[in-house]
Simulated scan of single mutants.
Amino acid sequence: MSRVFTVYNCGTGFNRTQTDEVVANMASRTSGAENRDWMVTDGVGQAFNTPGTFDPITGKKNVLGHMDERAILVALGSISGWGWEQNERHVWAVISSLISGSSAAPDTINMVGWSRGAITCHMIAHALAKTPQTRHLKVNIFAFDPVPGPGNFKPDKITLATNIHDYSVVQMDNEQRWIMRPMSFDGISESDVHGKYNYHVLPGQHDTGVMRARGAVGMIGAGLAHAFMTRHGTSLRSPLSYTPKEYCNLYAVARLNILKYKKAPTNNRAQQLGGLATHRRGLAPVSTVPKKLVETEYFVNNHHAHMFRKAFPNVYMRLQAGATLTGMASQTLKAAAHMTHTSLVEAGLAA
């Protein structure tokens, strides 16, 4: 039986206490003992347990760990990502210790991270791949909107290591602030990660997909992450498990709010330096949806289309044939999935 160790990497400005954010929330739900079955790294740019203020091996405060310097270190973390190398070394040290000193050493490393925490997952995977005692480990990563930050587009941060077995990424469609430019996934195929590769585009800004309590997109993001981690052996207490119909209703809500998500927060002058207020994300297209439904721009992403086809096969076939959903078929769907029906009406596909 596979022995799994799970790593959670919080995003910039976030830490394990902020459980309204999906990464910290998942860590709080994970079964087993910390540093034996799972661990969490606090994000750079926050003062709860600032990365870089402790020795990554011993955990003791280092020479920079005095409270009078904390504000400077928090600012450095927010601006440059300072401290994430310590998080990388800390995770590597814990995993190496488990391998050398445990009778139940892990053979699989599952990781989930957001923002620079997602980039930290990449850094850790590269570190594990380079070291003889850890290069045999199989790595699975769920990444929320991987953003390195200005000056940090380095190979160990924006490429996927050869030890990655399964990689899923959520990228937010409407975040256009120049400081939030994500790593590029152009040209990455399944062969690049020696296994599965899933790309999910969701509407919203950088944090929309990780804040479950704030709306449907956050609930979709959390559901995708929970499903990925539990599928690979991470034990979560009360894991989220949505049915295809439940996913469709969540996507329907997201689609009905699509114009709200398209309003990019680029008014802050500090984020318009050099005229670089916005960037183009170059998101992967929805490529597996039949053309007639693509032309309606109804589906949010491929996952939405897949869930819709599973939940409502007869409706899917009717719409794919070019018919509008009317009469009894429309009323039946309305009774079974009100939000999905409402979103189809809004898209001109049902009456």
Rank of each mutant, 00 (worst) to 15 (best):
I72H: 14
K157F: 02
Y251L: 06
G274E: 08
F308I: 10
N35K: 13
T288Y: 08
H136L: 07
R212G: 03
L224H: 10
D192A: 10
T159C: 09
G43A: 07
C248K: 03
L259H: 10
S31V: 15
N268D: 12
H194P: 05
K130R: 15
A277L: 02
R231M: 15
R309M: 04
A284T: 07
N9A: 00
H206S: 10
F144A: 09
D156M: 08
S100E: 11
L137E: 00
V23Y: 06
P148G: 04
G65I: 11
G117D: 05
N49H: 13
P56T: 12
P203T: 11
N198K: 13
M123L: 06
A252Q: 02
A305I: 08
P56G: 05
V201N: 03
L293G: 05
A143Y: 07
S343W: 09
G151K: 10
V315I: 04
A213D: 15
Y197I: 09
K138E: 15
Y199S: 04
Q272H: 09
V147F: 07
M180Q: 05
G149H: 04
H165G: 14
A129I: 13
Y199N: 07
Q86V: 07
K334E: 02
Q272F: 09
G187S: 05
T134M: 07
F14T: 05
L256M: 15
E175W: 01
V294W: 01
A305P: 10
A33T: 12
A161P: 04
S184Q: 02
A213Q: 15
K138P: 08
I109A: 01
A24E: 07
K154A: 15
L236G: 01
D173S: 12
G52T: 05
K334P: 02
L333P: 01
L293T: 00
A337R: 05
M123T: 01
A75M: 11
F54W: 13
P132W: 00
G149D: 03
A71W: 12
P148K: 03
H306M: 11
F142I: 10
P290A: 07
A222M: 08
F312S: 01
G117W: 06
G187Q: 07
D192L: 03
Y251Q: 01
T50F: 03
I95Y: 00
C248T: 11
E190D: 15
A47L: 03
V23P: 06
F312C: 12
V91D: 04
G81D: 01
T278L: 15
P150Q: 12
A27S: 15
E21N: 13
N49K: 13
G151P: 03
N163Q: 09
M111T: 00
W38M: 10
